[in-house]
Design a binder for these strands. Structure first.
Length: 453
RNA sequence: GGAGGAGUGGCCGAGCGGUCUAAGGCAGCGGACUUGAAAUCCGUCGUGGGGGUGACUCCACCGAGGGUUCGAAUCCCUCCUCCUCCGCCA
């Protein structure tokens, strides 16, 4: 959630940002509803906020009067005995009346606030000035390509897609997954299990070397935490599974459990930057996705992921530097695995609500002859921290403590095992159907090559 | 799962219907003393929001949400979390 003061001080900037992001806030008013849709959206927001402030002022005034009444009760004892009963009766009557009025106003104020925040929380974060503007695929900016895709033609064979490779080696079982849990669930088998664990072990090792504290996190979290991080657990297009008869959801990423860890806390500035890494299972409904792009392990309902998370100071460009660091770690991991990839600066129209800027790593996937997303890192600045109430006490140059500020929060994928497996199976497949194990993983997997049994 | 107990400012902790404008301590900050530091002493010090150009002022917050009352940190209800004991269990 953004600071509401932004709306009060510079509503024009909010409108411009909505336009840049093609961000729909109201169901009946969004991109495509005329050239001034963003300005009209902001007008509605301003009116909602104005209404809330007016009510708040009336409520405060009413409370002040009620407080005066009960304070007046103390003076009654000093009056003459004969006058006390009447004075008391008057105050009780007045207090009761104000209390009734206050109760009514409180309900209206609360409703107005909720209505405003419900809408305000759908307004996305501001956007980094360097983020390419646009909402089409070609609006993303490719920053660089690293590694050279293998020349399968020169090797004399046509690469298969990861599913064909894995099934031939008896590494995955989607049929049993479908029977037991439904489509897009799967079992990893044999060496794939070892590879899956080796990837986690490898990524955690890299994270630890970079100063991240390692965690295995809960796989469930409260809705309140999800909302704080900018996820919407309810609604027809939600990606989130929720647990019946409870306020719990299956997490779609450890970003939720790592980011939520520090909800409602005030940190000291010298605790920053705070670097956390976490392994969790990730569950996604993947509502409305299908097709070649989501074949096999590429898009599934459950996978394991090592996530990086950083809490940093809001001063200067601390979060931008950390964003670059997270991206560098992701690159280090995939370079270590020997997988060619490219780095994408995601365009404004494709950013998730909380993201100020986002970089994706896309691995080369020979099976489909295209790059496919394997990691993502977002700088969410203070957007998540505001709702989660995660703050720190900045130190002034003279060493004195200042008012708490919201931290900046960033997340990034170290390794999403299912997608990494896709990349490994496709890039490391051999003409004889075997798959070479990336050198880095060989010590943990315990073999150099996965062969047909 | 059952029975008890507890949640108060950054931290510890007193308060258990109006004197709370929440004691006291620790940490922090400013100052005195000191060549410097430590120790000691003095002062200062919660969070969020509204209004005002401003000195300032008003409102809310004692785990969360309801309730009783003219008035709630304090009494009642529900929930959450933690602790102790019992049961069950990988």
């Amino acid at each position: 959630m953004l600071d509401i003061k932004l709306l009060r001080d510079d509503s024009q900037a909010i409108a411009q940002n909505l336009a840049d992001r093609h961000a729909r806030v109201y169901a009946d008013l969004g991109p495509g509803d005329g050239p001034d849709w963003a300005a009209r959206t902001v007008e509605r927001l301003v009116a909602l906020d104005r209404r809330y402030l007016d009510l708040l002022q009336r409520q405060d005034e009413c409370r002040r009067a009620a407080n005066e009444t009960s304070a007046g009760m103390k003076a009654v004892g000093k009056l003459e005995k004969a006058a006390q009963a009447a004075a008391r009766e008057l105050l009780i009557e007045e207090g009761r009346r104000l209390r009734e009025l206050e109760k009514q106003l409180a309900v209206e104020t609360e409703a107005a606030l909720q209505e405003r925040d419900e809408v305000w929380s759908r307004v996305p974060n501001l956007t980094h000035p360097d983020t390419p503007r646009g909402a089409r695929d070609e609006d993303h900016r490719e920053l660089r390509r690293v590694g050279v895709p293998r020349d399968f033609a020169a090797e004399g064979f046509v690469p298969g897609d990861h599913l064909a490779v894995a099934e031939a080696l008896d590494l995955v079982d989607f049929a049993s997954g479908a029977k037991v849990a439904g489509q897009k669930f799967y079992y990893l088998k044999n060496e794939a299990v070892l590879l899956d664990l080796a990837l986690q072990h490898y990524a955690l090792g890299v994270a630890r070397r970079h100063g991240f504290t390692l965690h295995v996190t809960p796989d469930l979290a409260r809705e309140e935490i999800l909302r704080g991080l900018g996820f919407n657990p309810r609604g027809e297009s939600t990606q989130i599974y929720s647990i019946a008869d409870s306020d719990l959801c299956l997490v779609g990423t450890a970003e939720i459990t790592l980011g939520g860890m520090l909800a409602d806390t005030i940190l000291e500035e010298d605790q920053l930057p705070l670097l956390l890494a976490g392994v969790s299972h990730c569950f996604r409904t993947e509502a409305g996705s299908a097709g070649q792009e989501s074949r096999g392990l590429y898009r599934v309902h459950q996978f394991t992921k090592v996530e990086l998370f950083a809490f940093v100071s809001a001063e200067d460009d601390a979060s931008e530097l950390m964003h670059a660091k997270l991206l560098a770690i992701e690159e280090e991991i995939f370079q270590g695995l020997g997988i060619p990839y490219r780095v994408i600066d995601i365009a404004s129209g494709d950013l998730g609500g909380p993201a100020y800027r986002k970089f994706d790593l896309e691995a080369w996937m020979p099976g489909r002859g295209a790059y496919g997303e394997i990691t993502s890192t977002s700088n969410c600045t203070d957007y998540q921290a505001r709702r989660l109430k995660i703050r720190y006490r900045p130190l002034a140059p003279d060493g004195s403590k200042q008012k708490p500020r919201h931290v900046h929060m960033l997340n990034g994928t170290a390794v999403a095992c299912s997608r990494a497996l896709v990349a490994i199976f496709e890039n490391y497949q051999q003409a004889d159907g075997s798959v070479v194990v990336p050198e880095r993983l060989q010590p943990v997997v315990g073999m150099e090559r996965i062969r047909r049994r």
